[in-house]
Design a protein around this nucleic acid. Sequence first.
DNA 1: GAGACTGTATGATGTTCATCGAACACTCGG
DNA 2: CCGAGTGTTCGATGAACATCATACAGTCTC
Lengths: 114, 114
Amino acid sequence: MPKQAEGSGHRAAPVHVDPVDVSLLTALSAVADPVRIRLIRELAGSAAWTRSCGSFDVPVGKAALSHHFAVLRGAGLVEQRDEGPRRVNRLRREEFDARFPGLLALILGDDAAD
Amino acid sequence: MPKQAEGSGHRAAPVHVDPVDVSLLTALSAVADPVRIRLIRELAGSAAWTRSCGSFDVPVGKAALSHHFAVLRGAGLVEQRDEGPRRVNRLRREEFDARFPGLLALILGDDAAD
DNA sequence: GAGACTGTATGATGTTCATCGAACACTCGG
DNA sequence: CCGAGTGTTCGATGAACATCATACAGTCTC
Protein backbone atom coordinates (compact mmCIF):
# COMPACT_ATOMS: atom_id res chain seq x y z
CA MET A 1 0.00 0.00 0.00
CA PRO A 2 1.17 3.55 -0.76
CA LYS A 3 2.07 5.99 1.92
CA GLN A 4 -1.22 7.93 2.14
CA ALA A 5 -0.34 10.14 5.05
CA GLU A 6 -3.85 11.15 6.13
CA GLY A 7 -7.11 12.74 5.16
CA SER A 8 -8.21 10.47 2.33
CA GLY A 9 -9.25 7.48 4.37
CA HIS A 10 -12.72 6.32 3.44
CA ARG A 11 -13.99 6.53 6.97
CA ALA A 12 -17.00 8.82 7.44
CA ALA A 13 -15.55 12.30 7.69
CA PRO A 14 -16.69 14.29 10.71
CA VAL A 15 -19.46 16.81 9.96
CA HIS A 16 -18.38 20.35 10.73
CA VAL A 17 -20.45 23.46 11.32
CA ASP A 18 -19.13 26.94 10.77
CA PRO A 19 -19.47 29.09 13.91
CA VAL A 20 -21.16 31.73 11.77
CA ASP A 21 -24.11 29.39 11.26
CA VAL A 22 -24.47 28.57 14.96
CA SER A 23 -27.28 30.09 16.99
CA LEU A 24 -26.62 31.71 20.32
CA LEU A 25 -28.78 29.14 22.09
CA THR A 26 -26.85 26.26 20.52
CA ALA A 27 -23.54 27.77 21.58
CA LEU A 28 -24.66 28.41 25.14
CA SER A 29 -26.18 24.94 25.49
CA ALA A 30 -22.99 23.34 24.19
CA VAL A 31 -20.94 25.23 26.69
CA ALA A 32 -23.24 24.71 29.67
CA ASP A 33 -21.88 21.29 30.57
CA PRO A 34 -19.05 20.39 32.98
CA VAL A 35 -17.52 17.69 30.81
CA ARG A 36 -17.46 19.85 27.70
CA ILE A 37 -15.99 22.76 29.65
CA ARG A 38 -13.12 20.51 30.69
CA LEU A 39 -12.61 19.37 27.13
CA ILE A 40 -12.47 22.95 25.88
CA ARG A 41 -10.01 24.00 28.57
CA GLU A 42 -7.74 21.03 28.09
CA LEU A 43 -7.87 21.53 24.35
CA ALA A 44 -6.98 25.20 24.74
CA GLY A 45 -3.90 24.21 26.72
CA SER A 46 -2.45 22.11 23.89
CA ALA A 47 -1.26 22.92 20.42
CA ALA A 48 -3.67 22.38 17.53
CA TRP A 49 -3.94 18.85 16.09
CA THR A 50 -1.96 17.32 18.94
CA ARG A 51 -4.76 15.78 20.98
CA SER A 52 -6.77 12.72 20.02
CA CYS A 53 -10.27 12.26 21.42
CA GLY A 54 -9.25 9.55 23.84
CA SER A 55 -6.44 11.59 25.37
CA PHE A 56 -8.65 13.74 27.56
CA ASP A 57 -9.01 13.33 31.28
CA VAL A 58 -12.77 13.23 31.71
CA PRO A 59 -14.77 10.79 33.86
CA VAL A 60 -16.96 9.34 31.11
CA GLY A 61 -16.81 6.34 28.82
CA LYS A 62 -15.95 6.29 25.13
CA ALA A 63 -19.54 6.54 23.93
CA ALA A 64 -20.36 9.61 25.99
CA LEU A 65 -17.08 11.19 25.00
CA SER A 66 -17.84 10.73 21.35
CA HIS A 67 -21.22 12.35 21.93
CA HIS A 68 -19.65 15.38 23.62
CA PHE A 69 -17.27 15.93 20.74
CA ALA A 70 -20.20 15.76 18.33
CA VAL A 71 -21.93 18.51 20.30
CA LEU A 72 -18.80 20.65 20.28
CA ARG A 73 -18.48 20.16 16.54
CA GLY A 74 -22.11 21.12 16.09
CA ALA A 75 -21.49 24.36 17.94
CA GLY A 76 -18.52 25.22 15.77
CA LEU A 77 -16.14 24.97 18.69
CA VAL A 78 -13.98 22.08 17.56
CA GLU A 79 -12.56 20.92 14.28
CA GLN A 80 -11.53 17.30 13.78
CA ARG A 81 -9.33 15.47 11.34
CA ASP A 82 -8.62 11.78 10.93
CA GLU A 83 -5.00 10.90 11.38
CA GLY A 84 -4.51 7.21 10.96
CA PRO A 85 -6.58 5.36 13.53
CA ARG A 86 -7.16 8.39 15.73
CA ARG A 87 -9.12 11.59 15.37
CA VAL A 88 -7.23 14.71 16.35
CA ASN A 89 -8.77 17.98 17.41
CA ARG A 90 -8.35 21.70 17.13
CA LEU A 91 -10.10 24.46 19.05
CA ARG A 92 -11.53 27.01 16.62
CA ARG A 93 -10.44 29.99 18.66
CA GLU A 94 -10.52 32.91 16.24
CA GLU A 95 -13.59 31.76 14.32
CA PHE A 96 -15.66 31.08 17.40
CA ASP A 97 -14.54 34.23 19.14
CA ALA A 98 -15.51 36.27 16.09
CA ARG A 99 -19.03 34.84 16.22
CA PHE A 100 -19.45 34.94 20.02
CA PRO A 101 -17.02 37.54 21.33
CA GLY A 102 -15.85 36.95 24.88
CA LEU A 103 -17.55 33.62 25.43
CA LEU A 104 -14.43 31.53 24.97
CA ALA A 105 -12.40 33.93 27.08
CA LEU A 106 -14.98 33.58 29.81
CA ILE A 107 -14.70 29.80 29.85
CA LEU A 108 -10.92 29.75 29.69
CA GLY A 109 -10.42 32.54 32.18
CA ASP A 110 -12.71 31.44 34.98
CA ASP A 111 -11.15 29.06 37.49
CA ALA A 112 -13.23 25.97 38.30
CA ALA A 113 -16.57 25.72 36.56
CA ASP A 114 -18.60 24.27 39.42
CA MET B 1 -53.77 50.97 58.22
CA PRO B 2 -50.63 53.10 57.85
CA LYS B 3 -49.15 53.97 54.52
CA GLN B 4 -46.48 51.29 54.28
CA ALA B 5 -45.30 52.05 50.78
CA GLU B 6 -43.47 48.81 50.12
CA GLY B 7 -40.77 46.44 51.24
CA SER B 8 -41.98 45.56 54.71
CA GLY B 9 -44.84 43.30 53.72
CA HIS B 10 -44.69 40.00 55.52
CA ARG B 11 -44.72 37.99 52.35
CA ALA B 12 -41.73 35.70 51.90
CA ALA B 13 -39.01 37.92 50.51
CA PRO B 14 -37.33 36.60 47.35
CA VAL B 15 -33.99 34.91 47.96
CA HIS B 16 -31.17 36.63 46.13
CA VAL B 17 -27.72 35.39 45.17
CA ASP B 18 -24.80 37.71 44.60
CA PRO B 19 -23.27 37.18 41.14
CA VAL B 20 -19.89 36.87 42.84
CA ASP B 21 -21.03 33.61 44.42
CA VAL B 22 -22.36 32.14 41.19
CA SER B 23 -20.41 29.43 39.38
CA LEU B 24 -19.72 29.66 35.68
CA LEU B 25 -21.74 26.52 35.04
CA THR B 26 -24.75 27.91 36.89
CA ALA B 27 -24.60 31.14 34.92
CA LEU B 28 -24.30 29.37 31.57
CA SER B 29 -27.10 26.94 32.39
CA ALA B 30 -29.38 29.78 33.44
CA VAL B 31 -28.73 31.59 30.21
CA ALA B 32 -29.01 28.57 27.93
CA ASP B 33 -32.79 28.69 27.70
CA PRO B 34 -34.95 30.46 25.10
CA VAL B 35 -37.58 31.68 27.54
CA ARG B 36 -35.04 33.10 29.95
CA ILE B 37 -33.16 34.78 27.12
CA ARG B 38 -36.36 36.57 26.14
CA LEU B 39 -36.93 37.62 29.73
CA ILE B 40 -33.43 39.04 30.00
CA ARG B 41 -33.72 40.93 26.73
CA GLU B 42 -37.12 42.37 27.50
CA LEU B 43 -35.93 43.31 30.95
CA ALA B 44 -32.89 45.04 29.53
CA GLY B 45 -35.13 47.13 27.33
CA SER B 46 -37.04 48.62 30.24
CA ALA B 47 -36.04 50.81 33.15
CA ALA B 48 -35.25 49.15 36.48
CA TRP B 49 -38.18 48.30 38.76
CA THR B 50 -40.75 49.03 36.07
CA ARG B 51 -41.66 45.49 35.01
CA SER B 52 -43.69 43.05 37.06
CA CYS B 53 -43.25 39.31 36.49
CA GLY B 54 -46.54 38.94 34.67
CA SER B 55 -45.83 41.70 32.19
CA PHE B 56 -43.51 39.68 29.98
CA ASP B 57 -44.45 38.29 26.62
CA VAL B 58 -43.44 34.66 26.92
CA PRO B 59 -45.47 31.62 25.86
CA VAL B 60 -45.62 29.88 29.25
CA GLY B 61 -48.05 29.81 32.16
CA LYS B 62 -47.69 31.57 35.49
CA ALA B 63 -46.10 28.64 37.29
CA ALA B 64 -43.38 28.11 34.70
CA LEU B 65 -42.76 31.83 34.59
CA SER B 66 -42.26 31.95 38.34
CA HIS B 67 -39.80 29.09 38.03
CA HIS B 68 -37.78 30.88 35.37
CA PHE B 69 -37.49 33.99 37.51
CA ALA B 70 -36.27 31.84 40.39
CA VAL B 71 -33.53 30.46 38.15
CA LEU B 72 -32.52 33.94 37.04
CA ARG B 73 -32.39 35.05 40.67
CA GLY B 74 -30.26 32.04 41.53
CA ALA B 75 -27.79 33.03 38.85
CA GLY B 76 -27.52 36.57 40.16
CA LEU B 77 -29.06 37.97 37.01
CA VAL B 78 -32.22 39.49 38.40
CA GLU B 79 -33.16 41.31 41.57
CA GLN B 80 -36.76 41.42 42.74
CA ARG B 81 -38.72 43.58 45.12
CA ASP B 82 -42.31 43.36 46.30
CA GLU B 83 -44.36 46.38 45.40
CA GLY B 84 -47.88 45.94 46.63
CA PRO B 85 -49.38 42.86 45.00
CA ARG B 86 -46.80 42.61 42.28
CA ARG B 87 -43.14 41.74 42.19
CA VAL B 88 -41.03 44.10 40.15
CA ASN B 89 -37.67 43.27 38.60
CA ARG B 90 -34.31 44.73 37.88
CA LEU B 91 -31.52 43.37 35.69
CA ARG B 92 -28.25 43.33 37.64
CA ARG B 93 -26.20 44.64 34.75
CA GLU B 94 -23.02 45.96 36.35
CA GLU B 95 -22.75 43.27 39.01
CA PHE B 96 -23.28 40.40 36.63
CA ASP B 97 -21.02 41.87 33.99
CA ALA B 98 -18.26 42.29 36.56
CA ARG B 99 -18.49 38.60 37.42
CA PHE B 100 -18.95 37.28 33.86
CA PRO B 101 -17.56 39.91 31.51
CA GLY B 102 -19.12 39.96 28.10
CA LEU B 103 -21.78 37.34 28.70
CA LEU B 104 -24.64 39.77 29.09
CA ALA B 105 -23.44 41.80 26.13
CA LEU B 106 -23.45 38.63 24.07
CA ILE B 107 -27.05 37.85 24.93
CA LEU B 108 -28.28 41.38 24.42
CA GLY B 109 -26.29 42.00 21.27
CA ASP B 110 -27.09 38.86 19.29
CA ASP B 111 -30.27 39.03 17.21
CA ALA B 112 -32.59 36.06 17.60
CA ALA B 113 -31.44 33.32 19.93
CA ASP B 114 -32.61 30.31 17.93
C1' DG C 1 -65.09 41.36 54.19
C1' DA C 2 -65.91 39.80 49.34
C1' DG C 3 -63.68 39.51 45.16
C1' DA C 4 -60.11 40.56 41.62
C1' DC C 5 -55.30 40.39 40.83
C1' DT C 6 -50.47 38.72 41.31
C1' DG C 7 -47.21 35.48 42.34
C1' DT C 8 -45.59 31.02 44.79
C1' DA C 9 -45.83 26.08 46.09
C1' DT C 10 -47.04 21.39 45.05
C1' DG C 11 -47.73 17.20 42.44
C1' DA C 12 -47.89 15.08 38.07
C1' DT C 13 -46.48 14.58 33.26
C1' DG C 14 -43.57 14.57 29.21
C1' DT C 15 -39.28 15.57 27.06
C1' DT C 16 -34.65 16.19 26.68
C1' DC C 17 -30.20 14.61 27.49
C1' DA C 18 -26.02 12.43 29.67
C1' DT C 19 -24.56 7.97 30.34
C1' DC C 20 -23.50 3.11 29.65
C1' DG C 21 -22.85 -1.54 27.38
C1' DA C 22 -22.37 -3.85 23.33
C1' DA C 23 -21.79 -4.15 18.50
C1' DC C 24 -19.60 -2.33 14.50
C1' DA C 25 -16.00 0.08 11.37
C1' DC C 26 -11.56 1.47 10.40
C1' DT C 27 -6.24 1.61 10.89
C1' DC C 28 -2.04 -0.17 11.83
C1' DG C 29 1.60 -3.53 13.19
C1' DG C 30 3.06 -8.32 13.45
C1' DC D 1 -4.87 -12.32 7.97
C1' DC D 2 -5.28 -11.73 12.83
C1' DG D 3 -5.31 -8.73 16.90
C1' DA D 4 -4.83 -4.44 19.37
C1' DG D 5 -6.13 0.26 19.44
C1' DT D 6 -9.45 4.05 18.42
C1' DG D 7 -13.76 5.99 17.69
C1' DT D 8 -18.85 5.86 16.20
C1' DT D 9 -23.59 4.06 16.41
C1' DC D 10 -27.47 1.94 18.55
C1' DG D 11 -30.73 0.80 22.20
C1' DA D 12 -31.83 1.33 26.81
C1' DT D 13 -31.76 3.54 31.30
C1' DG D 14 -31.98 7.19 34.63
C1' DA D 15 -31.82 11.94 35.99
C1' DA D 16 -32.76 16.64 35.31
C1' DC D 17 -35.93 19.89 33.95
C1' DA D 18 -39.69 22.61 31.57
C1' DT D 19 -44.44 22.65 31.71
C1' DC D 20 -49.16 22.54 33.41
C1' DA D 21 -53.28 22.48 36.56
C1' DT D 22 -54.59 23.22 40.92
C1' DA D 23 -54.45 25.09 45.29
C1' DC D 24 -52.70 28.55 48.30
C1' DA D 25 -51.00 33.17 50.20
C1' DG D 26 -50.65 37.82 49.95
C1' DT D 27 -52.36 42.88 48.43
C1' DC D 28 -55.53 46.12 46.89
C1' DT D 29 -60.25 48.12 45.80
C1' DC D 30 -65.03 48.56 46.58
